[in-house]
């Protein structure tokens, strides 16, 4: 058991090193530009709107860049190993195929965590700088002004604090990470039987879209009364087992829009994610064990 974890760690670390040395983190530069631009370009909007732009663009960019890495990066993991025959040398050592696959996935999770963490740091840096600058501006405006103006400035400062130090952003980032983990898991599962990385990317993307439409279809068909035929119900049942319901991650948008989303709901979503990942990995291992290399 312990030996097994040791081998998984070795493979995960190697996967992370490979990605880092291929300069995946260069994507951070682009992210930094987006965060800064969205943070300071819209200065003539209201306070709340300015922060909403910054959060929207930054979390959105995190999500898109994360998706790119999760999709492209994971889709290439197995094909690269097979093409370079490195997988032969690894599996010729006392390593189980399940350990290899889990190690690869953990390496990808570590890469996504690293990227998300660094993007979050950039994001927090930008948002705190913006807070500082805006508060300074308020104080400057309030200097020597009448009591009414000063009271308004104080109100504004309170609002700036509240917007900039919104703890719900942590929820948004954690949920974004969970979504990326599911996409990476899907891509890994598909790549265990895919014959090319392109196929994996295309299929994963399709499943991702279906995952977004799934709950819409379910709502439309299943509440449609007795007219919905049996086949449609079966189809939807199978679909919801195979395809994760990606709409559960839409709460991210609600959080950014300013709605309160309780942590209990976030934890529910995370548990769903965890269970779905367990199913994904089990199926991936079953398929990969039978694969001819």
């Amino acid at each position: 058991m312990f030996e097994s974890l040791f081998r998984i760690r070795a493979i995960a670390r190697n996967t992370l090193t490979e990605a880092l040395r291929q300069k995946v983190l260069n994507i951070l530069l682009l992210f930094g530009v987006i965060a800064i631009v969205s943070g300071f370009l819209f200065a003539n909007f209201t306070l709340a709107e300015q922060f909403k732009f910054l959060k929207d663009f930054s979390i959105g960019a995190m999500s898109v860049f994360g998706l790119l890495i999760a999709l492209m990066g994971t889709a290439q993991l197995l094909p690269n190993e097979i093409e370079n025959r490195t997988i032969y040398t690894i599996l010729a050592k006392p390593v189980r195929r399940s350990e290899f696959l889990i190690g690869k996935y953990c390496g990808m999770l570590a890469l996504l965590a690293t990227t998300m963490l660094l993007m979050s740091i950039v994001f927090v840096g930008v948002i705190l700088t913006k807070e500082r600058l805006m508060i300074n501006a308020e104080l400057r405006d309030a200097q020597g002004a009448n009591a009414e103006m000063q009271a308004m400035a104080n109100e504004n400062i309170k609002q700036i604090h509240k917007e900039a130090r919104d703890p719900r952003l942590i929820q948004a980032i954690v949920l974004t990470y969970a979504k990326l983990a599911v996409v990476a898991g899907l891509a890994l599962l598909i790549s265990t039987f895919a014959t090319s990385a392109i196929f994996t990317v295309a299929t994963t993307f399709m499943v991702y879209i279906i995952g977004h439409l799934e709950s819409v279809a379910r709502a439309a068909w299943l509440t449609g009364g007795s007219e919905v035929n049996f086949a449609a119900k079966i189809f939807l049942g199978v679909l919801s087992f195979l395809v994760p319901d990606m709409n559960i991650y839409n709460v991210i948008d609600e959080i950014i829009a300013g709605s309160a989303v309780p942590w209990s709901h976030t934890l529910n979503v995370l548990s769903y994610t965890g269970i779905f990942l367990l199913i994904l990995m089990s199926v991936a291992i079953l398929i990969f064990n039978e694969r001819e290399l």
Binding site: R9, I90, K93, P94
Partner: peptide, 8 residues
């Protein structure tokens, strides 16, 4: 070092 790690 990597392959050694795989072999425990």
């Amino acid at each position: 070092r990597f392959y050694g790690g795989l072999a425990g």
